[in-house]
Design a protein around this nucleic acid. Structure first.
Length: 491
RNA sequence: CGGGGCGUAGCGCAGCCUGGUAGCGUACUAGCAUGGGGUGCUAGGGGUCGUGGGUUCAAAUCCCGCCGCCCCGACCA
């Protein structure tokens, strides 16, 4: 195994695939298209979960859990949604195996044990959840109903990539019910805001908030809001979605409530989710040819301490390391002290760079004399020798600075790679020669959108929410347009 | 589903064309030296060569079937 990663500039997808494996985030499994998330990768996901979960609770949501299986009759009740997912559903048809009479020691599906009704493995849970909500909601007093679940879902993808697209993935899905349309829309937008805040403040990833075109909209929704991020190779990645469902699911599952005036009406719904795909976003947004670069707020270990040992007499050095660790922990910093004597310091340096630990501290006997320590930043790969006095504050400040610096770097990159383009030829040239986000005028028709997609592989990522109105003409058809939309080739 | 590639030691690969003792790097084990950026040297352990059949005195190697995985496209978070 070669020690260096492939270079981003030479083989971006090879770099990504290798990095995920070498940094111990995840690996392929015995099941086609499904990944094993390894402890280090899962630790990052857990940090994301903890943060998001807190944010959901702060906005009034409660967690619950609904079944993995959805009876086919329920699944097909909301037609648009069912059609949208039909091609990628795993289906359970039997409930028993038996010994194969023809092959000793082998099992076969027992043909006698066919299910009366097939069970769909959830690709999303609207159906099972709304069928349950019917029993929970009678009056406006039962609303709003604000539920989230952390779960796995299955979408039978043809081509998979670790974290970015796997047949089974982990996510959270919020499902809410409201008495008015306005309140449901407000909820949809609020949760989009939560995602954007999470992306920017924790993933250190700048995102564009927007609305999907009808073509790209979630099946069964009236409006799909999204946050779109730009990866280092100039491709866009959808990092989260929030759907205004209107009364579609309420009607499909007959979820009605009586309002204050005694009138019976269908409730208004939303759903919103982010998945382990965020791991892919995190990796591709910040990491470099040496390995992962993790924002301090999501790093399993914010600081690693590496003692530089000599000979056998290291008692004082190791004791100093332990004291340092205790000081940092007390200051609220997560610290790993790697005092293994089975690996060399140089090996550890390379290892923690690969794993993206934001700050590395090295202490040797020389430092003991000087009351100093070597402090290295992962994001800039710079190092300096600093005094042990007041090290807690120094590192707390540094962690904030790194978090900020990573964000700014990503933001600067996105701004540099976001171009306004007014004619189709330049548009195509940009995509090939300097890929990134392109803001361009579009006539608003699905036909033009489809044509651009077929001819250039670029899609409309979203109609950005925060932008000035600007009259113009569609770069393809010359028809009038009231504002620019965001194009990119996407993951 | 279409196109391409690959299954040989934990991992990464060579060997196959031209059949004849299964090899390299790395990882692993031990010893000695070394020790502020993936240490060096020496010795050692580890493989039904994906699988089933065929050809042959002899198959990792040639022929046929099957299975699995990866990559590129169409679909998607």
């Amino acid at each position: 195994m070669s020690k260096a990663l492939p270079k981003r500039s030479e083989d971006y997808s090879g770099w990504y695939n290798e990095l995920v494996k070498r940094a111990d985030l995840a690996e392929n499994s015995a099941v086609r298209g499904c990944m094993v998330i390894k402890p280090y990768g899962f630790a990052i996901w857990e940090k994301m979960q903890q943060t998001l979960d807190r944010m959901f609770k702060e906005t009034g949501h409660s967690n619950a859990y609904f079944p993995l299986f959805v009876p086919k009759s329920l699944f097909e009740a909301e037609e648009q949604n069912a059609e949208g997912f039909a091609k990628e559903c795993a289906v359970v048809t039997h409930y028993r195996l038996k010994n194969d009479p023809d092959k000793k020691g082998k099992l076969m599906v027992d043909p006698e044990a066919r299910l009366e009704e097939e069970l769909i493995v959830r690709p999303t849970s609207e159906a099972i959840i709304w069928s349950t909500y019917k029993g929970w909601i009678q009056s406006y007093r039962d609303l709003p109903l604000l539920i989230n679940q952390w779960a796995n879902v299955v979408r039978w993808e043809m081509r998979t990539r670790l974290f970015l697209r796997t047949a089974e993935f982990l996510w959270q899905e919020g499902h809410t019910a409201h008495s008015t349309k306005a309140e449901a829309i407000e909820e949809t937008e609020k949760m989009l805001g939560v995602y954007a805040e999470f992306a920017e403040n924790f993933l250190a990833l700048p995102v564009v908030k927007g609305v999907k075109t009808p073509n790209e909209r979630f099946a069964g929704a009236l409006d799909t809001y999204c946050i779109e991020a730009l990866m280092q190779d100039g491709k866009a990645l959808q990092a989260g979605t929030s759907h205004f469902l209107g009364q579609n699911f309420a009607k499909a599952f007959d979820v009605k409530f009586t309002d204050k005036t005694g009138t019976l009406d269908y409730v208004w719904g939303t759903s919103w989710g982010v998945s382990t795909r965020l791991m892919g976003a995190l990796i591709m947004a910040h990491s470099d040819d040496n390995g992962l670069v993790l924002p301090p707020k999501l790093a399993p270990h914010q600081v690693v301490i590496v003692p530089i040992v000599f000979g056998d007499d290291n008692a004082v050095l190791l004791e100093t390391c332990k004291q340092l660790k205790a000081r940092l922990l007390k200051a609220g910093i997560s610290v790993l002290l790697d005092d293994r004597d089975t690996q060399k310091p140089g090996w550890k340096f390379a290892e923690y760079e690969l794993k993206g630990v934001p700050v590395r501290l090295a202490i040797g006997n020389r430092d003991l004399q000087n009351n100093s320590i070597e402090l290295a930043r992962r994001d800039t790969l710079t190092k300096e020798t600093v005094s042990l006095d007041g090290i807690e504050d120094r590192i707390l400040n540094l962690l904030d600075e790194i978090q900020e610096s990573i964000y700014k770097k990503a933001l600067a990159f996105r701004e540099k790679q976001t171009q306004k383009v007014d004619d189709y030829e330049t548009f195509k040239k940009q995509l090939d020669e300097n890929p990134g986000f392109i803001l361009a005028h579009w006539d608003g028709t699905p036909e033009t959108e489809e044509r651009i997609k077929t001819e250039t592989k670029a899609t409309i990522r979203c109609i950005p929410l925060d932008q000035e109105k600007e009259e113009g003409v569609c770069m393809v058809t010359g028809k009038p347009s009231s504002g620019r939309v965001l194009f990119a080739r996407a993951y």
